[in-house]
Structure formats: C-alpha cells, structure tokens
C-alpha cells in the first residue's frame, strides 16, 4: 500500500471508477475484432473498508491501512445503463443559456447550501421558483434570496453588456435638439426605463429601445465644453462617456 493515503470524496471516487469502466468498454470494440468472444461488465459491486470523516460540511473517506481494525464497510454497486436511458433520466447540463451557480459570484456558503438542495445552475433555481418554493425559508434563512436574485440578474447582464456604436445630435419634429445614441443591448428589462444624466442634471428620455436612446437636450446642456453623459439601463448597468455638444 502506498504511504500517501489521503482522504477522498465519494463523488470523485465513483467518477474515477466510472471512467475506468468506460475505458474498458472503449477498448472492447477493438478487442472484439480479433477475439469474437469477449465480455462486457454488466454490474460491478465494490466493498470498501474505509474510515469516514466529517468536517462539518462534507463527508470524506480514507481507506483502511494494513492492520487497522474497526473500519466501516461501504458497498458501492454500479449497474449499466444505455445511452437512451441516460438521455431519458438525466438533465442535460451545460446548456448554452444555462449559468452555473459558481459563475454568478455567490459566496461559498450559499453555493454549498444550494448544491445540497440540488440547485447547481440558474436554470435549476428557476425550476424551483416555478414550483413556488421559498428558497429562503427552505434553507432556514441561510440563503438571502434577494441578494441571490440580484447576483443572477447582474451575471446575466454581464453576458450581454450594452455597447454604444455612435452618438449624434438631431432635431425632433418640434425643432428641439436631442442626442441620438445608437448601439446594442441598451434596455433589456422593460421594468427599468433608462435614466440619463448630462453634467449632473437629469435629462429627459424621449424614446428608447434595445438599439437606441433619444435624449432631449435643454439649453443648459449645450456648451462648447466637454459634457459628461451617464446612462443607466437597469440596476446593473451604467454607461459613462464624455461628449461635446
């Protein structure tokens, strides 16, 4: 037995076991070309003599060393399953629009708590919400749902940041001057109309959509000096630029 006996997670152990069995299957097809009678593993059971340890969060195991008495027995049984059965019983992970919980910047405690509840992605969280489950109550108030929801929105907004392609000065039908800001991903959430400020003074937004914003200008906005334009499209997005009007 090697000397560097270390603690391991059951999940990592089973992963390794499955990978080993998969490799066996991969070579089987080649082996079968020259050896017509070959065998494939249908079920596998493994009895382990191990000592468990609990660090307050996860249970890990270490294999019993020679001469060590009193080890626990863990019996793992792996059955075989066809790829069709896998598709029918498993949620597809890593979908293009799905965001993993660890990617939205939540703290480790919240992440672990969510993982224990089977929530690994934003999509999982939405499924829970659809069933009217109060995550905050289900987690004994250990998860601040408002903060979590904000972080999810922020993370989504980071994936589609606003982009300004051009700013021009125009006149509306009443000959009033306005700034025409063109770009992408400006207003994505209809609950939040854009708010614009020019040189620390609120400016009226005449029209807006995801590609453009039209900002009405007052006389005081028009100077020969550089002006500071700030636009917010939702609580997570702020665009700041210097323009000369």
């Amino acid at each position: 037995m090697a000397n560097d006996n270390k603690y391991w997670n059951l999940e990592d152990f089973v992963d390794s076991l499955v990978v080993e069995l998969d490799k066996t299957r991969e070579t089987l097809a080649i082996k079968a070309i020259n050896k017509p009678l070959t065998y494939t593993v249908k079920d596998l059971a493994i009895d382990l003599n191990i000592f468990p340890t609990f660090d307050g969060d996860t249970i890990r195991f270490i294999t019993a060393q020679p001469g060590q008495q009193g080890a626990s027995k863990v019996n793992i049984q792996l059955g075989s399953i066809t790829d069709q059965q896998v598709r029918a019983t498993t949620k597809i992970s890593g979908l293009k629009n799905d965001t993993k919980i660890e990617d939205i910047g939540v703290d480790e405690k919240t992440r672990n708590k969510l993982r224990k509840m089977g929530v690994n992605s934003v999509d999982d969280l939405q499924q829970v919400e659809k069933r009217q489950v109060d995550i905050q109550r289900a987690s004994d108030n250990e998860i601040d749902y408002k903060t979590l929801a904000n972080q999810i929105q922020k993370s989504r907004r980071n994936m589609t940041p606003p982009k300004v392609n051009g700013v021009s000065l125009s006149l509306d039908d009443n000959k009033r001057p306005y700034l025409h800001v063109k770009g992408e991903n400006f207003t994505l959430d209809p609950r939040y109309p854009p708010v614009t400020v020019i040189n620390n003074q609120l400016a009226e937004v005449m029209e807006f959509n995801t590609h453009e914003v039209k900002i009405l200008l007052d006389k005081q906005h028009i100077t020969q000096h550089e002006s500071e334009l700030i636009m917010t499209f939702d609580p997570y997005t702020l665009v700041k630029m210097n323009i000369r009007i």
């Binding site: 065998y39 494939t40 249908k42 059971a45 493994i46």
Partner: peptide
C-alpha cells in the same frame, strides 16, 4: 493487508 472486495458481473459482448 486490508482487503476490499470487488464483484464483477459480465456478459457476452
């Protein structure tokens, strides 16, 4: 040594 146990059920491929 600490002996663990492995049981493999296999079928004709």
């Amino acid at each position: 040594p600490s002996y663990h146990s492995v049981t493999i059920k296999a079928e004709k491929y």
